[in-house]
Every structure is written in C-alpha cells, then in structure tokens.
Write a protein that binds this DNA or RNA. Structure first.
Lengths: 216, 216
DNA sequence: TAGATTGTTAATCGATTAACAATC
DNA sequence: TAGATTGTTAATCGATTAACAATC
C-alpha cells in the first residue's frame, strides 16, 4: 500500500478558468484597484460569485471575510499556481504570415512567455529576422529545444505539414503543443495539445445567426 | 397561454462539438471514406461513441444500424445544421501582422467564410492590398457592413482599441464577434462574442508542466 | 441468419449554485 | 456593532456513459 495520498485532482475546467481570472486581475491592478470581490470579478467575467470562490478554494484561502481579495496578492498567487511567475521559452514552427504575427507580438513576455526560436523549411525564409529571432531550418530545431530546455511549441504550418512537425517536436522533447493547423494531432498521451482554429468559432456562431449568406 | 412549444434547447456544448465533427468528416471524405461509425469518429477525436451518437440525436437520425454513417451525407447534414452550406461574409478590423495573416489565409472559403473587408485607422495601411481586399479606414466600415449584410466581424486590433472597435461594430449591425485582443468585451447580451488568446492556452499548459523557466 | 451499429433510456458522474456560519 | 464577504456544505442541475432493444 502506497503511503502517498492521491493527488487532490483539481478539475481541468477549473484550471482553464485561472488564466482568465489572472488576466482580469492584472487589468484591475493596472487600474489601481487594491481590492476586489468574488462578486465584482463575477460581474466582469460573466460568472457567478459562488463559482469564483469555489474555484479559488481548490488552492487555498486568498480573501478576507467582509473585505474581499487583495488584487496584487491574488495575482501573485495565481501566477504561482499557474507557474507563470517567470518566463517560459517557446519554440515556433512556421514562418508564414501567422508565424510572423506570433513572433512579432509584444504581449507574450509580460504574461510569462518568450518566443526563443522560429523554424521553417522554406529556404526563402531561413536567415530572415522576425521579431527578435532569426528563422532557422527545421534541422536546427532539436538542438535549440535541448539548449533552451524548451517544453512548449507552437505549430503554425499548413495542415498538411502539421502532423509531421508535431512528431519532430515530440521527438525533440517538447511536452505541450499549441496547434494552429485545423487538424487533430496524434501524439503520445503524455503530450498536451491545445488548438486554435478560428473557423471552429465562426461555425459555432453561424448556428445562432439568421441565415443570410451568399450561395456557393 | 402560448400555443408555441418551448424551443427544444440544444445544449451549447453540443453545438460547440459540431464544427469538430464536420472537420473530421471532411477529412474522412477527402480520404475517400464512404462510411464511418460513432466508434471510428470517437477514436479519431478522443470522444466516446455514445457521446457522438447522443450529440447527433439532437438533430435527427443520420445513421443506419449495423452500417454506421454515410460520410458525405453526414457532412451535408452538419453543414445545414451549422448553416455553413454557403459562404458568410466576414469583416476584419485591424491590418497589423495578425490581420494580414487572417486576410491572407486561404482556408476560410472552403469552410464557409470569406473576408470581404479589412479596416484600420493607420493611414500607412489604408489603401494597401492584403489578401483579396484593399484596407479601408474605419469610417468606411458601417457602410460596408450594411452593403454586404455582414453579421460576423473579427477584431484584430491592440487591446487598448478593442472595446471601442467592438462598439462601432455593434452599432453598425454586427451580431457575432471573434476577438483576438486579450480582454473581455462588454457588448449587449444579444451579441455573441468568442475569444482567441494564445496566452490563455500557454498558461493552461504550464499548470501541468514541470517548472523550468527563466527568472525575470 | 449472424454480426454490427444505431438511437435512446436510465444510471452515473461531475459541475454549478444557493445558502449560511464564520469572521473581518 | 452592523454590514459585507469569504470559504464551504449540501442541493441542484446538467452532461456523460453504459446498456440494450431495434434493425440494417
């Protein structure tokens, strides 16, 4: 019989809300708010105050009865819980328009991430500078991942290349993937994959819209 | 007492899976698969076969016992349900790197969407061509939305401008917004808003990663 | 026919909410 | 103190799953 207690098993859906809470708290902080409440946060986010208190309760007690939460302190705590109280190196594969947009975006660092390498197989792109880095060939990727101890990668290549790139990234030691290609990647179950596909959002919207579109 | 029966109330979480099903069915179709089953779809998507059958059952009976689903037929049905059996015009605000990437992407049309206008207030961008359209000033936006009967808009401007842009879009008659700025928009409850923020995904990932990042 | 798979029901599981004692 | 708000419990709500009759 193992002496260790089972992991307290915080629901993933709770984890998925923490970055949203953090983003809102950071905003309140820049607006010089010193304290907030579960009710105020709920109103800002369209959630119930009960849900916000319940979510926080999985990690500790961060508030004071009658007063609410200290904004700066709660920010710090959420950053620790999410492990974004530091800067994570991120590898980007794909130096097309999307890769360019991602590598040029200045909003990552203040939220805990830095794109430390951009890789592409197009000879026309290799050697060019985007953002703060020089585009390198895919063959240079594994060494870069190892040197930077990089665990996160972004896939911004066409759908036809995405699965192959994912396999190269996993082989090189990447643990989490953010995939912009509109396909489901097949990777070992230990690898976390998240997806961004604007068409999925569009098609969700159209269900609720009145149909008034051009025939094709 | 009203004679109308209550709307059958299909859960939004079911709707949110339909575009994923459609994407996978389209893939099977290009791979010349003629039939599939809830079990096969489930395996491809990491869902249970029961969930897939349950989801479909909200909309009708699309399969045959013993045989499964005709891929082409199920595609057509899902396209009708989601109302993407046509092309929806989409307005894009923001002609930075991200706007450029979106306007240049060739994958929208085959999935039911076309960017018919790009708007920005930067004089250096107005008049330049990206994708198939010419960037226009924001003042030209309301008329374009009216002329195209456009109900969907994408916000790809900096966070500081996003709320103001959202208000202009809503005033011009837009019904659904896809927001790439990392903020929560405040809009009337009749307006649907969806968000894309890669940092939210990164911060979700880091919770599960071993911490090994650079101090800042 | 025998095998396979659907559509649907009922059971289970998990997430959200309401309520309130504790307490700042 | 009186008012406000937390953290937590129990109740409610809703989504997923298991099971199976129907049937191709």
């Amino acid at each position: 019989m193992s002496l260790s207690t089972p992991v307290s098993e915080i629901p993933d859906i709770v984890i998925s809300r923490l970055p949203i809470y953090l983003r809102t708290l950071r905003l309140l902080h820049t607006q010089k708010a010193e304290v907030t409440s579960s009710q105020e946060l709920g109103q800002l986010l369209g959630l119930s105050s009960a849900q916000i208190r319940k979510d926080f309760s999985h990690f500790g007690e961060f508030g004071k009865q009658g007063t609410g939460y200290n904004v700066a302190y709660l920010c710090t705590q959420l950053e620790k819980i999410l492990k974004v109280d530091c800067i994570w190196p991120v590898i980007l594969v794909g130096a097309g328009y999307l890769g360019h947009a991602l590598a040029s975006y200045h909003g990552f660092e203040q939220r805990g991430f830095r794109i430390v390498g951009v890789f592409d197989n197009d000879p026309a792109k290799i050697g060019s500078q985007i953002g703060a880095v020089i585009v390198e060939g895919l063959d240079a990727m594994p060494a870069a991942i190892g040197q930077q101890r990089c665990q996160i990668a972004v896939i911004a290549v066409p759908a036809t290349a995405a699965q192959r790139v994912a396999e190269l990234l996993v082989a090189a030691g990447i643990k989490s993937l953010l995939c912009y290609a509109p396909i489901k990647l097949t990777v070992p179950s230990s690898i976390r994959v998240e997806y961004i596909d604007p068409v999925i959002h569009f098609q969700h919207m159209t269900f609720y819209l009145e149909k008034a579109c051009v025939n094709d």
